[in-house]
Each structure stands twice: as C-alpha cells, then as structure tokens.
C-alpha cells in the first residue's frame, strides 16, 4: 500500500509542479495553437459541487491534453470535502467526425464530517466516444473511479460510539463506482459550453450511491 501511495504522490507532485489538469472537450474545435484551456463547472457529483480546471494541450500528432482539476462540495464548511485530479485525455482514434477518446487521472480527495475525516488516493479512467463538429459535439462516456487507499481519522464523537475504532490507512480498496452517460457542448470563438449527465453505480452493479446521478454544466476558455 505504501508503495502505491508513494508512487501516486510522486506522480501528483510531478504533475503539480507543471500544473497540468479533466475537462469536457470539443476535440474538433481545439486548434493546434490553443495551448491553455481554463474551465469552470458546477453540478451534482455525489453532492452539489463547484469545480475549476486547467488543461495543457500538448503539441503532439495525436491530440493529448494534460489536465488538473479541483472541486469542492457545497456547504457551510467549504474545504472539508474536496477532490483534486491530475491526469490527461487522449483522442486516440478518429473516423470522419467520430472520435474515440480516453482519459486517466490520479485523485486525491478529502471528506470530513463530525465523526471522521477521510483522505483518499484513487484513480479514474474513462472512455468517451462521440460525434464532433466545430460548433458542437455529442458523446457517450463510460468511466470507473476507484478509491484505492483511504486514511481514517475519527473524532471523539465516533470514539464514544466505538472506542476501539482504528485510525490510519485502510486497504485494499475502500470503494469503486462506475458511471455512464452523455456529454455534449456548443462551441463559439474560443469558448465551449458543455453539459455532462449520467448514472452512477457501485462497482458490483448491484447497488447505487444515495443519489445515483451526476450532472455537470461547464464553461471552457481556450488561450494560445
């Protein structure tokens, strides 16, 4: 477990120093000289969340975007529940206007409530297949998000419930969810307005989170 955490931390810090960032992208509208993609978004992902992200468009033959994002859950205590992601997306195949894309990200996230604080290192992977035009796009997406290793720190409230509760790192994986849905957007000038929506299920496909849906409205601005 330690090795995994150290490895992920290594990758996170490596990417962080270059500040690279996960976005909903109109690949057909992305010009080769547009290097920087700024994005803000809002929506429902387990709870109501606000997010921002940055993408760096690499000068490669196959379109690749390295990206990083930060999102936090709505509530009176802003930074007790948040998620950061570092990774990238690649448009690995194209037939006419149909594009096949994949993404992978390392995740660090935190959850706090009156009973416990959880810190988790995880990863997600996604496949996006869609029809892309310069002004608009629509695509289907399928993703998997795994909470690989999680640190638990309990408050006195939970210690009164169960004095022998263990703090520390827990493994193997503490959870995993799959998501499937659609995404689409409208592009104008250097901007994209995007919308994602779909369903979330736990990895055994038997149960769902309490709110088994996600929806995200985003705005991206591209710079040379």
């Amino acid at each position: 477990m330690k090795a995994i955490v150290v490895f992920i931390t290594f990758l996170l810090s490596l990417f962080t120093t270059n500040f690279l960032q996960a976005q909903t992208i109109n690949w057909e509208n992305l010009k080769s000289d547009e290097k920087h993609i700024l994005n803000i978004n809002v929506g429902w992902e387990y709870s109501f969340v606000y997010g921002l992200s940055y993408g760096y468009h690499l000068k490669t033959e196959i379109p690749i975007i390295l990206e990083g994002s930060f999102s936090f859950a709505s509530g009176e205590v802003i930074f007790d529940d948040f998620k950061t992601k570092i990774g990238g997306q690649i448009n690995f195949y194209q037939i006419d206007n149909f594009r096949f894309n994949a993404g992978i990200h390392g995740i660090y996230r935190r959850y706090g409530n009156p009973l416990v604080t959880l810190q988790n290192f995880g990863a997600d992977a996604s496949i996006i297949i869609g029809y892309y035009k310069p002004k608009w796009f629509v695509a289907g997406e399928f993703g998997y998000d795994q909470a690989i290793v999680t640190h638990f720190k309990h408050t006195n409230i939970y210690k009164e419930v169960y004095p022998d509760v263990k703090n520390g790192w827990f493994e193997p994986t503490t959870g995993g969810n799959v998501n499937f849905g659609i995404q689409g957007g409208y592009s104008f000038k250097q901007s994209d307005l995007t919308l994602r929506a779909g369903k979330v299920m736990t990895q055994d496909f038997q149960t769902t989170p309490l709110i088994p849906f996600y929806v995200q409205l985003g705005y991206s601005y591209k710079l040379d």
Partner: peptide, 8 residues
Amino acid sequence: LYVDQFLT
C-alpha cells in the same frame, strides 16, 4: 452524500 465516492 459526498462519502459515497470513498466507501461503497
């Protein structure tokens, strides 16, 4: 609800 991505 947010805990649903940490523990399934």
